[in-house]
């Protein structure tokens, strides 16, 4: 890592702390995925890595490359924003698919279809009402 030899001390320390924080959060999410019992608990665990794990890593990269080039480098924000926007979309789709599969099998411990029907305007509502 000879390219980092002329890095200011504060930038190196900040980069190191942010890197360690992000990696620790991601590892904690992975361990949570191993330890939780049901899928609906497990679906929460990886968000630890996708929210502040990715955020801290992107911040570390921003600090490092900004101090290295002595100019503001912000393109890592793209990754942070993209992951923040797409993770809820993926996980909500996945949780709805899992709920649908569990209901179709009649698995125990799954909340039943609520009595409150949504208006049959969108395709998702009619799709779900056929689940039982």
């Amino acid at each position: 890592m000879s390219h980092a030899a002329d890095l200011p001390v504060w930038a190196a320390l900040l980069t190191a702390a942010l890197l360690l924080a992000g990696a620790t959060l991601t590892l904690a999410g992975a361990i949570g995925t191993l330890r939780f019992r049901s899928f609906y608990e497990r679906v929460h665990a990886p968000t630890l890595g996708t929210s502040w794990g990715t955020g801290a890593m992107a911040l570390a990269s921003i600090v490092f490359f900004s101090a290295l080039g002595s100019r503001l480098v912000l393109h890592e924000l793209l990754i942070a924003v993209f992951v923040t926007v797409t993770t809820p979309v993926t996980l909500m789709l996945l949780a709805r698919a899992a709920l649908y599969r569990d209901r179709a099998e009649g698995a125990a411990g799954v909340p039943a279809q609520s009595e409150l029907r949504r208006p049959n305007g969108n395709g998702e509502a009619s799709h779900e009402s056929g689940a039982i």
């Binding site: 890592m1 992975a30 899992a98």
Partner: peptide, 30 residues
């Protein structure tokens, strides 16, 4: 993973880990 949704969830998280690993390699090599 007991069911398919666990496998998809873990695969998605593995993609995120690989992305973060690429970022750390970028910091290491500059």
């Amino acid at each position: 993973g007991p069911r398919a949704q666990d496998r998809v969830l873990s695969l998605d998280a593995m993609y995120v880990c690989a992305m973060l690993l690429a970022l750390t390699v970028g910091i290491r090599t500059g």
